[in-house]
Design a protein around this nucleic acid. Structure first.
Lengths: 98, 98
DNA sequence: CTACTATATGCCATAATTGGAATATATCAT
DNA sequence: ATGATATATTCCAATTATGGCATATAGTAG
């Protein structure tokens, strides 16, 4: 585990610092999905890669999983993600001009 | 520049995915600071490293700079950062147990 | 048991990030 | 002009992340 608070926070942002994982999170915003559904939407990536992405998001504390037979269902664990991402859009909308 | 939206968002999170840059951002939350003040607080790191951290945060759109004589002053450019980080604490507080 | 399906794990080459050391630039004072 | 100070840039070795491929595991069906 990371020693100090800033390192722990950085680990959380590292989990978000990847387009595939961000897209996965986005998919989960409208409810629980099984790994197979996520794979279906992200066909450009290998199954193994999706699986690793989900595990990384889980380790960072963003999502949780639930097994049901052969399937594994993932869902958001953090309710404030919506607001979290709204701020992001402010950044994206504002120009990079100083 | 990154092609799609998720890649652009990932770039923003990459800028946050580092303890030094997070600590710098934290220092700027209570107002504009000159590089020298930031260095003073982060003595464990080299001047060059602090400078690079500031530039990365600026490129990501989080902060802006202003020159005054020999000094450069940096300040937050995004007003919603406070809320942004509040959500983080939710994640940090919640256990990693599924 | 075997066969099948869904998901996870291990290995690996490539690419990106980190942070130190040295150097460059810009501004100010004399 | 020279020298001093604040900040930025370049170079580089070490570490870490990315994403493909192959394989393993776990649950289900027959």
């Amino acid at each position: 585990m990371a020693e100090n608070l800033y390192e722990r926070k950085a680990l959380i942002f590292k989990a978000l610092a990847n387009p595939v994982r961000l897209e996965v999170l986005d998919m989960l915003i409208d409810g629980e999905k099984c790994v197979c559904e996520i794979q279906e939407k992200l066909k450009k990536y290998q199954q193994a890669h999706i699986s690793k992405s989900l595990i990384k998001l889980k380790e960072a504390g963003f999502i949780k999983d639930r097994k049901e037979g052969l399937n594994v269902y993932y869902s958001l664990k953090i309710c404030c993600l919506g607001d979290f991402f709204k701020c992001l859009n402010n950044i994206l909308d504002s120009d990079t001009s100083n």
